[in-house]
Design a protein around this nucleic acid. Structure first.
Lengths: 346, 346
DNA sequence: GTGAAAGCGCTAACAG
DNA sequence: CTGTTAGCGCTTTCAC
């Protein structure tokens, strides 16, 4: 019942193991046909363990993301897979659930099992990229930078610009009391989307109370809680920029629970599109980006690193984002005088 | 720059490799402290390739699903991970995109890399489970059965009953012209949800035109197209049962595009809950099930198979589902006489 | 307790 | 073009 080995195949085909090995790896061999038959008859499958013990290559790459449920990361996976499809690399997918601790475990475990890694670190003060570098595992960072910036190939998007687009869109609708539900602030997208929010408001000389920035940790529940707090403010915002799609789901649930109307009572802009965005009532205005391309690009860069490119200079790509306007934004409602007065005081 | 081996550690600690090996696997050893220090200093990590070449075990299990984007499968993953967390098994996740061909590739590739597999086959006439059985890889099927039913441990849900709950709910609202957007009909859930629909209608002596069954292939786009076709019928249904969550998204998009109102013009019941279901307008009535439990249970069964349990009899678990009533169903609207006449003719 | 040594299945010189 | 052979890093007898 033990699986057949290359020796069994060699015997069955009446050749030596090296001939079998050569044939399997593509060399021209006389006994090709006989070997094929032997392989088929025995249902021989080469042992990856033996292969990688010998060659030092595993034939696999890992793709580690904070949240597979998020359609953004799902798209990244598709993009990455589209590149490996033809070439013979297995992709191992792993989920860290936005947790540094979980990521450390996962990376530690995968580090010896793969030839390269695509990683979207849970946070910026996260040792994983360094571990990978120390272990000599080619690594490309996706969407999030490493503490020691500049040392890794990275595929980012223009988070700061995206936030700016969102805020300016709200501004152009006449809003000033604009709040944000921020992501994990020590992650690249969380940080820059928040900075984009702040810088844009500052550029328009708008000052807002600190409670207008609510942390949502990129999780649905965080979005829900944050929106609840925002809505409970004595002087609530007339517009909210939510820094990712999962938090937006939570935020909209809170909005629904409270009975606030969008966009009449509150305008909303999300970050990252989602299949559901269009069927919401009203459809959601979002900042969108080339998701699959981000995954595909990252995989191409990784493959190139793994193949040869040992250049010391790391590449840092920043992809553009754009505003997809739907119907969740409108002019601010008439604020009661009391609210106005308080607003003026800030 | 080569990674340190167990020999390096042995040298550094001044003991033999076997002592190091023993210590690492938990045996009591005198030089424990010294070995630990050597391991740390050298940053030694055992080579999984060498370990599994020797032991025949990979320390990994695979979890292969048709669509990671689907929150149902995401929940299954969480459930499965919750079981392995403590124990030392790496989980490799893989996506087959509802494709038999892709699944064959993925399974073929993983078959030599793991000690066991959790698989949700893309369809019932799919050779993968058989391949796994032939290769002697312990396998537990999730949500979908194998052609040779009864030979595999399987964790299912009551698809037929779920469909019945949905149809009876619609019936109790006064609907008779009930259509369905079916999933992949050659997959277990697709088949039984459709049979549940048919059997329930038959039990109430309701006959409907064949166009009332539209295939959606479990994909969002399929749901969209199917709903479009349903709505374009000269005599459209007053209610629709959509056989999974992703198709429901597509169906609702079509509904929105056409301008049909839910539940006024059309009542909708979905299968499988989704974070978005609650924030839709109206919130969606769905058939719900214990998703994480399905994953956790499957993983427990797999682990038990891998550990010892070589009993020939396979276990087949069927979990209950329930109707989560929200607001997407109501009484049928007044049908114009023309429609009535045609309906009577069927 | 510990060490020496035999392989696990495969690849890549090396010598024909 | 083909066969022989030496390991890759580790676990596990087997003797001590």
């Amino acid at each position: 019942m033990k699986p057949p080995t290359i020796t069994d195949v060699a015997q069955e085909a009446g050749v030596s193991v090296s001939t079998v090995s050569r044939h399997l790896r593509g060399d021209r061999v006389r006994a090709a046909e006989r070997i094929n038959r032997a392989v088929a008859r025995l249902r021989y499958r080469p042992s990856p363990a033996a292969q990688s013990l010998k060659s030092g290559k595993t034939g696999a790459v890992a793709l580690v993301v904070p949240d597979i449920t998020n359609p953004f990361f799902a798209a990244v996976v598709r993009g990455a897979e589209s590149i490996t499809a033809q070439g013979g690399h297995t992709i191992f997918l792993a989920n860290t659930d936005e947790s540094d601790a979980r990521e450390a475990e996962v990376v530690e475990d995968l580090i010896t099992r793969v030839d390269g890694m695509l990683l979207a670190p849970a946070s910026e003060n996260n040792p994983s990229p360094q571990r990978l570098a120390d272990a000599g595992v080619p690594t490309v960072l996706i969407d999030r930078e490493a503490p020691s910036t500049g040392r890794f190939d990275t595929v980012l998007i223009d988070n700061h610009g995206g936030a700016r687009f969102a805020i300016e869109h709200l501004l152009s609708n006449g809003h000033e009391r604009i709040a944000t539900i921020a992501g994990t602030v020590d992650s690249t997208p969380g940080r820059f989307r928040l900075e984009g929010y702040r810088d844009t408001l500052a550029a328009y000389s708008i000052e807002l109370p600190p409670e207008f920035v609510q942390p949502g940790g990129f999780k649905e529940h965080g979005g829900y809680q944050s929106m609840l707090r925002l809505l409970a403010l004595p002087d609530p915002p007339t517009a909210v920029f939510v820094a990712n799609n999962t938090m937006t789901i939570g935020a909209l649930r809170a909005i629904k629970d409270i009975g606030v109307r969008v966009p009449d009572d509150l305008s909303v802009v999300g970050f990252d599109d989602h299949p559901f965005s269009e069927i919401l009532d009203p459809p959601l205005t979002v900042i969108d980006r080339p998701m699959e391309e981000q995954g595909a690009l990252a995989m191409r860069m990784l493959l190139s690193r793994m193949n040869n490119d040992s250049s010391r200079i790391s590449r840092r790509v920043v992809l553009d984002v754009r505003l997809t306007e739907r119907a969740s934004c409108g002019p601010p409602r008439n604020t009661p005088m009391g609210a106005r007065r308080k607003a003026a005081r800030i």
